[in-house]
Computed example of a mutant assay.
Amino acid sequence: MTASSPLQTRRGAIAAGLITSVLAATRAEALPAGEDPSQGITGGPDDWAFLVGRWKVQHRRLKERLVGSTQWEDFAGTCVNWPLMDGQGNVDDNVLELPGGTYRGVGVRAFDSQTRQWSIWWIDSRLATIDPPVRGGFKDGVGTFIGADTYKGQPVTVRFRWSELTANTAKWDQAFSTDGGKTWETNWLMWFTRAPA
C-alpha cells in the first residue's frame, strides 16, 4: 500500500470537514416526514463507487427555466470525484465552461445510515452559497434525489436523477416542479465520459 501524498491527505481532510460542517448546518432543514418529497427513496454507502475518478462532461442546459422555453445551450466541462469517510461521503470538483464564462462548483454528498438516504448539496463558486439538499438513493440502477428550493423567488421541488450508469459513462439530469411533483420541467442534462487518470 502506498502512502497518500500530503495534497491528497489535506484535500481529504478539508472535504471531510466540509461534509461535517454542511451536515451540521443543515440538520435543522429536514422537513417533517409528511412533507418530505424524498421519503421512501433509500440507498446504500456504496452507491457512488461508479463516480469516483476523472470525467469529461457534456452539458445541455435550458436557457430559461419555468417559462416554457425550448432553447438549449451546450457546453463542456470536467468533474473529479473522490470518496470520503469509508464511502459514507464523497465530493466532486466541477469545471463548467459556460458560453458566458467558465466557473467551478462543488458537489458534496453524505449518507445517513439511519434513514438510508443520501443528501446532496451544490456549492456554486459564483455565489459562495450552499443550495438546499436533495435527498434519496438508487433503485434498479437509477438514482433519484428530491428536495425543496426556490427559483427566482418561486417555490420549486428539485429532482436530480442519475441513470445509464456504466464503468465509463453516466447521465445526470435536473428537473423542477411547481406543482409538488405532478409535472416536471427538465432544465439540465449532463453526459459523463471517463477521462484518463
Rank of each mutant, 00 (worst) to 15 (best):
residue 139 K to E: 15
residue 19 I to A: 14
residue 109 R to F: 12
residue 161 R to G: 02
residue 149 D to N: 14
residue 28 A to C: 11
residue 41 I to P: 00
residue 120 I to H: 09
residue 20 T to R: 14
residue 73 E to P: 04
residue 96 L to M: 09
residue 166 T to E: 04
residue 55 W to D: 01
residue 137 G to V: 05
residue 124 D to L: 08
residue 140 D to W: 06
residue 74 D to W: 06
residue 8 Q to P: 00
residue 45 P to M: 10
residue 139 K to R: 13
residue 80 V to N: 03
residue 106 V to W: 01
residue 101 G to N: 07
residue 115 T to S: 15
residue 30 A to P: 01
residue 57 V to S: 03
residue 171 K to L: 11
residue 159 R to M: 08
residue 39 Q to A: 14
residue 96 L to H: 08
residue 165 L to F: 06
residue 40 G to N: 08
residue 100 G to T: 13
residue 191 W to R: 12
residue 117 Q to N: 03
residue 145 F to I: 06
residue 138 F to C: 06
residue 31 L to M: 14
residue 72 W to T: 06
residue 94 N to R: 11
residue 43 G to V: 05
residue 47 D to Q: 07
residue 142 V to I: 14
residue 52 V to L: 11
residue 51 L to T: 02
residue 34 G to Y: 01
residue 118 W to K: 10
residue 18 L to S: 05
residue 18 L to V: 05
residue 2 T to C: 03
residue 110 A to R: 05
residue 59 H to P: 02
residue 176 F to H: 12
residue 145 F to S: 04
residue 143 G to R: 09
residue 117 Q to P: 07
residue 138 F to D: 03
residue 147 G to N: 04
residue 121 W to D: 10
residue 103 Y to R: 08
residue 65 R to D: 01
residue 24 A to G: 14
residue 41 I to R: 15
residue 153 G to I: 15
residue 121 W to R: 04
residue 173 D to H: 09
residue 174 Q to T: 04
residue 181 G to I: 04
residue 193 T to V: 14
residue 190 M to A: 14
residue 135 R to K: 15
residue 12 G to M: 10
residue 61 R to L: 06
residue 173 D to E: 15
residue 67 V to G: 07
residue 62 L to P: 00
residue 166 T to D: 02
residue 13 A to D: 13
residue 42 T to Y: 03
residue 37 P to R: 11
residue 140 D to H: 12
residue 81 N to I: 04
residue 154 Q to F: 03
residue 13 A to E: 11
residue 95 V to F: 03
residue 14 I to S: 06
residue 176 F to T: 01
residue 36 D to W: 09
residue 170 A to F: 07
residue 121 W to Q: 05
residue 109 R to C: 07
residue 183 T to Q: 08
residue 134 V to F: 04
residue 131 D to Q: 11
residue 162 W to K: 01
residue 129 T to V: 13
residue 71 Q to T: 15
residue 12 G to W: 00
residue 167 A to D: 10
residue 191 W to Y: 09
residue 102 T to C: 01
residue 91 V to Y: 01
residue 39 Q to S: 15
residue 14 I to E: 12
residue 161 R to V: 08
residue 50 F to S: 13
residue 121 W to N: 02
residue 91 V to K: 09
residue 47 D to R: 05
residue 127 L to R: 15
residue 195 A to N: 12
residue 33 A to M: 07
residue 48 W to K: 02
residue 7 L to Q: 06
residue 74 D to P: 00
residue 141 G to N: 10
residue 157 T to S: 08
residue 175 A to F: 07
residue 66 L to F: 09
residue 143 G to D: 08
residue 163 S to N: 06
residue 174 Q to W: 07
residue 33 A to R: 14
residue 180 G to D: 08
